[in-house]
């Protein structure tokens, strides 16, 4: 039998490590927002009238919302198909979903730069089809940010929904059909309600991750489409630590607020499992 002391001893090294190299650094940085140079909440009071902060926050939230909606519309059908396919076909689809999931965000953002550039594939196609006369400005627009982020976050929507859909008892669907429900009704009355936990988990995951996105908007977005994380990085470059810390607290608060809801959902654990396995 494990004694009471051993488990504690086992977690101590990692706990100390995380405190020393992660938690305390982040906390001390965040403290700059209220302790520079003396204790004050002035930085936060100023945020309320800070037009840059408000505009960037709005842009961040709007982007997160658009991306979440986009991934849901594209992701749900894929998840549904994934749950209905036979073993071999399902494995192929799963591989197509997981490969981008495992590919670096940087590589995937670069792919979109290639596709959306002035002389990128899409412009070349449109030009040669005669639909346009001169290349469209696609890269460095909000649209580019949205499309690339939807592409990158799509697996995070598909996996939780698929994991919930896969758990639906097949007999239930047959029973519903046996009771005279049309396929459409079986979907709307049985499948859809049962998949809600997965959908909610997917929505919150994508939303939370969108809020903190940095690499993709920095590469494919325009200079005026700042996200909160980009503004923070900018302020650090300007060595404006109190302001950067203040913005970090704001971003963290938004995220944690969503996480509080997220943590209550059992489906989220299934997501973590899907992500690690």
């Amino acid at each position: 039998m494990p004694s009471r002391v051993t488990p504690i001893l086992l977690v101590v090294p990692l706990t100390l490590y995380m405190l020393a190299f992660y938690a305390l650094p982040v906390a001390s940085m965040l403290l700059r927002s209220i302790a520079d140079p003396s204790w004050t909440v002035e930085n936060y009071l100023r945020l309320a009238h800070d037009s840059v902060f408000l505009a960037v926050s709005w842009n961040t939230l709007r982007t997160a919302l658009v991306v979440t909606l986009g991934t849901l519309l594209l992701g749900y059908p894929v998840a549904l198909a994934l749950s209905r396919l036979r073993h071999g076909a399902a494995a192929v689809v799963l591989a197509i979903v997981l490969l981008p999931f495992w590919t670096s965000v940087l590589v995937r953002s670069y792919a979109w730069m290639v596709l959306l550039g002035r002389r990128g594939l899409i412009n070349e196609l449109l030009l040669s089809a005669g639909l346009i006369d001169s290349p469209l400005r696609l890269l460095n627009t909000p649209l580019a940010v949205h499309v690339a982020m939807i592409h990158i976050l799509l697996p995070y929507m598909i996996l939780p929904i698929a994991s919930v859909l896969r758990q639906i008892d097949r007999a239930l669907l047959r029973a519903a059909a046996g009771l005279g429900a049309s396929p459409r009704r079986v979907f709307s009355q049985v499948v859809l309600p049962l998949s809600v936990p997965g959908v909610v988990a997917g929505i919150l995951l994508v939303f939370v991750l969108s809020l903190g996105f940095y690499i993709t908007p920095a590469l494919v977005g325009g200079p005026r489409d700042l996200m909160l994380s980009m503004l923070i990085a900018q302020q650090v470059d300007l060595l404006n630590w109190p302001y950067a810390a203040c913005l970090s607290v704001a971003l963290l608060a938004m995220t944690l607020l969503l996480i509080l809801v997220l943590q209550r959902l059992p489906a989220v654990r299934a997501v973590l499992r899907a992500a690690t396995q």
Binding site: L19, S28, L251
Partner: peptide, 21 residues
């Protein structure tokens, strides 16, 4: 503590670590 890096925005972790390192 251990799982939080999964959800704390990357930029916040990054500048926190940078600040001390």
């Amino acid at each position: 503590l251990i799982l939080s890096p999964l959800i704390v925005p990357g930029i916040v972790v990054a500048i926190g670590i940078y600040y001390v390192f």
